[in-house]
């Protein structure tokens, strides 16, 4: 039983980190219509900044710089590249982001080399044990912080002018624009928010039990794509729930792989996508996505 609970706690905490990344995908997509293939390299950039700066300026200051840097990078990508596309549609924007991803990832790979850069977090390799359940301290903190961040997001979207403007722009850009909402501003805010969330997720993904910052960190953002999709493409709540589902399902599939051998080896990689396809078969627009019902 405690084994099950350990795997569950592990899956939930990982799922909350995935949620942070998936929410970034949602916000960029709803605010500017871009499928952000460069999200992983933005995440890696944030984590890289933290790892490089934590020595000279200390961990917490480095985290602030990392978050600000990733947010700024997002804003710049949007302002300099996305808004200057020769023809703006989701297909070209997605490929543009692939180009950006190649640039960022190549440069970061060159800088990092085959080192693993320690993130230097004060919680190190500690674990917390409650009853028979053990969880790395970094994961416990990540889970708590993610919940706080999601609460702040709710406050932002429900209670502040900027948040309401962003929601309005996401719901119907043209109408929002007519009502005086500047789409360029809501877009920039979306990219900044997504970059900041990615950097936070990056710090925790590079913390124990992972070794530190390496180029492979960029790929971990892709693990959030099934979470985003099954939650519904345009729903922040869906992204969080999707992250939790994917996190738990993956942890359980790996934890009980020895009982599931008839499904083949290496289940952890395929299970998130299998769950995603199953959900889409039942609900084509995801768990919380707006149904695209059209009456004729």
């Amino acid at each position: 039983m405690s084994y099950f609970l350990t795997q569950l706690a592990n899956g939930l905490s990982y799922g909350l980190i995935l949620g942070l990344i998936a929410v970034g995908f949602v916000i960029v997509f709803t605010s500017t219509g871009v499928l952000n293939f460069a999200h992983g390299s933005v995440l890696l950039t944030g984590a890289y900044l933290v790892a490089v700066l934590q020595g000279p300026v200390g961990f917490w200051a480095a985290v602030v710089v990392g978050i600000a840097g990733a947010a700024l990078l997002g804003v710049l990508i949007n302002a300099v590249l996305v808004r200057n596309l020769a023809e703006a549609n989701p297909g070209t924007a997605a490929i543009l982001m692939l180009g950006v991803d190649i640039l960022l990832l190549t440069e970061l790979t060159r800088r990092i080399g085959n080192r693993v850069l320690p993130i230097g977090a004060p919680w190190g390799a500690d674990v917390v044990a409650i009853g028979g359940v053990t969880l790395p301290t970094s994961r416990a903190i990540a889970a708590g912080l993610a919940v706080v961040v999601f609460g702040l997001l709710w406050f932002l979207f429900a209670r502040t002018g900027t948040g309401v403007a962003m929601r309005a722009a996401a719901a119907d850009g043209d109408t929002a624009s007519l009502m005086g909402i500047r789409l360029s501003r809501t877009g920039a805010a979306g990219w900044a928010l997504a970059g900041a969330l990615a950097a936070i997720a990056g710090v925790f993904l590079a913390s124990f039990p992972a070794p530190g910052v390496g180029p492979a960190l960029a790929i971990s953002a892709f693990a959030a794509i099934p979470a985003w999709v099954l939650g519904g493409f345009d729903s922040v709540v869906g992204a969080i729930v999707g992250g939790l589902i994917i996190g738990v399902v993956t942890a359980l599939a790996v934890g009980y792989e020895s009982h599931l051998h008839f499904l083949g080896r290496g289940l952890g990689e395929v299970v998130p996508y299998a769950v995603m396809i199953l959900v889409l078969l039942v609900r084509p627009s995801g768990l919380f996505g707006r149904a695209e019902a059209v009456r004729v």
Partner: peptide, 27 residues
């Protein structure tokens, strides 16, 4: 799925196929 989803939504849903196919190829 392909008849009910449109545009970029379908694109993301189809990513799953790549991983399913890989699982089958390996196993």
């Amino acid at each position: 799925i392909s008849g009910r989803l449109r545009g970029i939504y379908l694109g993301l849903a189809t990513i799953g196929l790549v991983f399913l196919a890989r699982h089958l190829m390996v196993n």
